[in-house]
């Protein structure tokens, strides 16, 4: 559902930051801001590791969720075109989903239609999966006040 900044951008930013830290004066203590960003760098590396490990499975699951929610699905060749191609295909499906959601809203029904409910369930299902990878400590409970 959301991978911008994508893995490449995440790791590039981490590398650029670490390079800056390593280029600092030897022996000079790190300030609080740099130490804080070192923790962020560590967190982003862990996130990237989880995403690499689960990417194929997550992409397949996301395509399946979107396929069930939309009348069209991604072209088969796009899904076979490697990770980058799959993500582009999923983006295209997500844009279709946004348009479908906007159409649900424009229909103006007081009670949600079956289509609207299906679209919302797809959004929730994909968000849940992505959050479990991006931040396993995030509490997905529904009952908090």
């Amino acid at each position: 559902m959301q991978d911008r900044p994508d893995l490449e951008a995440l790791l590039t930013a981490v590398a650029r930051f670490l390079d800056g830290v390593a280029s600092g004066a030897p022996g000079r203590p790190l300030d609080a801001g740099t130490l804080y960003r070192l923790r962020i760098a560590s967190h982003l590396c862990a996130l990237a590791s989880r995403e690499v490990a689960s990417q194929d499975e997550e992409d397949a699951a996301e395509v399946e969720i979107l396929r069930l929610a939309l009348p069209q699905t991604a072209p088969a060749e796009a899904l076979r075109a490697g990770a980058r191609g799959r993500r582009q295909a999923i983006r295209a499906l997500e844009r279709q989903l946004c348009a479908a959601i906007d159409a649900d809203a424009a229909a103006g029904a007081d009670a949600p239609s079956l289509d609207a409910a299906r679209h919302e369930e797809a959004v929730v299902a994909v968000l849940r999966r992505r959050l479990q990878v991006a931040n396993p400590r995030f509490d997905l409970g529904e009952d908090w006040p």
Binding site: E94, C98, I101, H119, V123
Partner: peptide
């Protein structure tokens, strides 16, 4: 990037 959740 598309954000379907925010559309809802």
């Amino acid at each position: 990037e598309p954000h379907p959740a925010l559309h809802i």
